[in-house]
Amino acid sequence: MPILVLIVQSFNAGKSRAKWEGFSFRWYGALFQSVSIMDALKVTLSVALLATVISTILGTLAAIGIYSMKKRPQSVMMTMTNLPNTMPDIVTGISLMLLFIFTRINRGYLTMLMAHITFDTPYVILSVMPKLKQMNKHTYEAALDLGATPTYALLHVLIPECRQGIVTGALLAFTLSLDDFTVSYFTTSPLVQNLSTLIYSAARRGIEPTLNALSALMFVTLLVLLLIVNHRTEERN
């Protein structure tokens, strides 16, 4: 319901939210001309993409590593993986901010990326691990017995077995990174903003209609994307 209002508002010609002054695309035009919003969009997308790729690689490797550890280190590693999930966002953000302040690293694009990788990776591990555990242990050994080198067995047996988990983890990481506000807020400088922090600083000044247009667009894009995904899975079945 509030979202519907937002979408309707985005077509409102007037600047005030209270009055309806006719249908227009004015705010959509303004949206694409606004440098700060387009910059923020670029930052958001590139951070999400980079963080997803890096954390997926890091997480998949780690999951395989943790899986083949002995019991004791394995449980230590899993506790460490679960730790960021149980910590509230604000503490994650603040602790990273303290780290960057302490080491005198200027906060900006790179620090935000690092922060995103930090909170994405555990989710990748947590979605790859169950797949590894479900896998039949003997498949890998059989591959070795049949003359596969460990590298070959890894690439052609282990990775395909948990591909589903990897994809889920990557998608999860991407969404989390797109949607994150709290951690980004504490780990970036006011000069480099992603959409969330931009919306936050704009909201404190009062909402601009361009933000309505932006949210309407984001909403429709996601809707279309998901419909396409749904359609494809149905066709496959």
Binding site: G65, S68, T118, T121, I125
Partner: peptide, 22 residues
């Protein structure tokens, strides 16, 4: 095969740097 546990080392390093240390 057991040495595959080394695959977790970059992650371990990362987590020590960005979760434990903070």
């Amino acid at each position: 095969g057991i040495k595959r546990s080394l695959f977790a080392s970059p992650y371990t390093l990362w987590m020590i740097l960005f979760t434990v240390l903070p």
